[in-house]
């Protein structure tokens, strides 16, 4: 049972000081969670702290490999609107 940071992490440091288990480490190309130490904050917090402050949708996965913050959940941008806008920019 552990969370995982993936490549969309922007290395903003927000999560690192919040981890009650000292499981988050600065690394390149992005921060990593030591799965042996991660407790998903059980016993310390109601919600896993790294996923609670992370500003990037999809950057943290739960133990099933699913994003804790799925597309649209943090920015409020509906995923289809983002896809349309990006397609329009690419077409220019």
């Amino acid at each position: 049972m552990a969370l995982k940071i993936i490549e969309s992490c922007v290395n903003c440091w927000a999560c690192e000081p919040l981890c009650p288990s000292g499981a988050i480490f600065e690394a390149r190309p992005h921060f990593i969670i030591d799965p042996k130490r991660c407790t998903e904050c059980e016993g310390d917090h109601a919600q896993p702290q790294c996923a609670e402050i992370c500003p990037i949708e999809g950057a943290i996965l739960n133990s099933f490999g699913e994003p804790v913050n799925p597309p649209g959940s943090l920015t409020g941008i509906p995923p289809h609107r983002l896809a349309e806008a990006m397609a329009e920019i690419r077409a220019r």
Binding site: S8, V10, N11, C12, W13, A14, I53, P55, I56, L74, T75, G76
Partner: peptide, 14 residues
Amino acid sequence: APACNIQCHYCNRK
């Protein structure tokens, strides 16, 4: 200061 504690609709951290 890279970390932020809020999200503003005019900002994109990526």
